[in-house]
Design a protein around this nucleic acid. Structure first.
Length: 179
DNA sequence: CCCTGATTCGC
DNA sequence: GCGAATCAGG
């Protein structure tokens, strides 16, 4: 029934996943020939785990199951990690009258909140999502939902040519995921 | 019980 | 590489 993971199917998978579609929704969108488990498995094999736009229903936990460690070079402070965030998807919240968008300066990151975050603003999480201090980068999103800088750390295609052997095994092993 | 993604492990 | 089973949480 299902032709396996063809180029276009993988492409659709990547697109939908980065759009924030849930694994089950993607599975259904792909024709039902695959289950959500298959989708998740493929996503992980592609090195696409973790994304800015979570799913609609209840979010998953914040288990440190996927240590991406490296904090992006944020001007202000180091975000915990590109883990999932509570709600980045734009939604027709309450009629926020004339929210005077903070207009994040290109130099300043972390000024956009979930309410002020525009469609084309970098959705890189800054700080702890559970606190009121939580915000988003907010700079111009050019690569997907991130700015150029954060896109580099966010989208890690698992590209790691085995460049011989690395001396520091532990460190190298933890680093090669995002190098 | 519905959902979510994460991980394991036989194939 | 693939994905069902399982896990862990909301």
């Amino acid at each position: 029934m299902n032709p396996g993971w063809t180029e276009d199917r993988v492409g659709a998978l990547k697109k939908l996943w980065l759009e924030g579609q849930s694994a089950s929704q993607i599975a259904k969108a792909l024709g039902g020939g695959v289950t959500r488990n298959a989708v998740i498995g493929k996503v992980h094999r592609l090195g696409l785990s973790g994304r800015a736009a979570p799913s609609q229903p209840a979010r998953t936990t914040f288990r440190p199951a996927r240590p991406r460690a490296a904090a992006p070079a944020a001007p202000t402070q180091a975000p915990s990690a590109p883990r999932r965030i509570e709600a980045a998807a734009p939604r027709p919240v309450v009629a926020a009258p004339q929210t005077p968008a903070p207009a994040p300066a290109p130099e300043l990151a972390g000024t956009a909140t979930v309410l002020t975050l525009g469609a084309h603003m970098c959705k890189w999480p800054i700080g702890d999502p559970s606190t009121s201090e939580f915000s988003f980068c907010g700079r111009r999103a050019s690569e997907g939902v991130y700015c150029v800088e954060h896109a580099r750390v966010a989208y890690q295609p698992q590209v790691r040519k085995s460049a011989g052997k690395d001396a520091s095994s532990d460190l190298a092993r933890s680093l090669r995921r995002y190098i």
